[in-house]
Design a protein around this nucleic acid. Structure first.
Length: 232
DNA sequence: GACCAGGCACATC
DNA sequence: GATGTGCATGGT
């Protein structure tokens, strides 16, 4: 459950502190919306550096005999991901870890995308037949964080993304309970912020940044731009 | 050689 | 609903 933090806790003030300290983060680093989705699955419990290796491995995969995963404009070709056998895909994403699992999850998403929307992301994000978030959550391997990352960073929809850094940074400042559920923490943000995709985009990226720099297992609160929270 | 990283599904209680 | 476990590579 949410901590008895002051209901007046000013999440916009925290946001501006982070933005002033770090500047714009330019998330998500990807060439296309589809690549955002691939990255969102590959980065599950995995450092982004390893994901970058896996993405590069995919892009460098240009066998003379078969199709390349890239379109002529350099973007990933969803059809390639739909067609490639799971085992071959697994080999290419090896560096991201959990590669058999993630290959299955990518294939599960591709099946969903083609079965429901004929492979067209445009159609998926324009789906008005029901809550897209619910549909995505039913795809095996897509949990709340992955789905919200897809909706926010590929679909430009205002869902606040909660991850391990969000929980750690905000529980250490006693603003959320360390054991709060995903949806409780998400509500904490979404009830206190304007529902704005650009804001959520930048905010989450800034939280990850401050988490990586100052809020690891061994925190470095001395130089952290959020240290002021301890004195309020 | 531990420990960690932008989770999730499944089993069990 | 809470807790435990498997999944795996690569950096520190």
């Amino acid at each position: 459950m949410i901590n008895p933090s002051p209901p007046s806790v000013d999440l916009l003030k925290i946001y501006h502190r982070l933005y002033t300290a770090f500047g714009p983060q330019h998330w998500w680093p990807a060439a296309s919306r589809f690549e955002v989705i691939v990255g969102a699955i590959l980065t599950q419990n995995t450092s982004w550096k390893n994901v970058e290796k896996a993405l590069k491995s995919l892009k460098d995969n240009t066998p003379s005999t078969s199709q390349t995963p890239l379109l002529e404009n350099g973007e990933f070709n969803p059809k390639w991901f739909y067609d490639i056998p799971r085992n071959q895909l697994a080999r290419l994403i090896r560096a991201s870890g959990f590669y058999n699992l993630k290959a299955s999850r990518l294939k599960a998403f591709m099946t969903f995308l083609y079965d429901e929307y004929g492979g067209a992301l445009d159609r998926m994000f324009l789906d008005t037949t029901g809550p897209l978030r619910r549909k995505l959550l039913k795809v095996s391997g897509l949990g709340p964080e992955t789905v919200d990352s897809i909706l926010l960073y590929a679909g430009d929809k205002p869902y606040f993304v909660v991850d391990a850094y969000t929980r750690r940074v905000f529980s250490r400042h006693a603003l959320v309970n360390e054991k709060a559920s995903y949806s409780e923490i998400q509500d904490f943000f979404m009830k206190r912020l304007p529902l704005n995709a650009s804001l959520f985009n930048e905010y989450h990226a800034l939280i990850v940044n401050v988490g990586k720099k100052y809020c690891k297992t061994k925190p470095d609160c001395e130089r952290c731009p959020l240290a002021y929270l301890f004195n309020e």
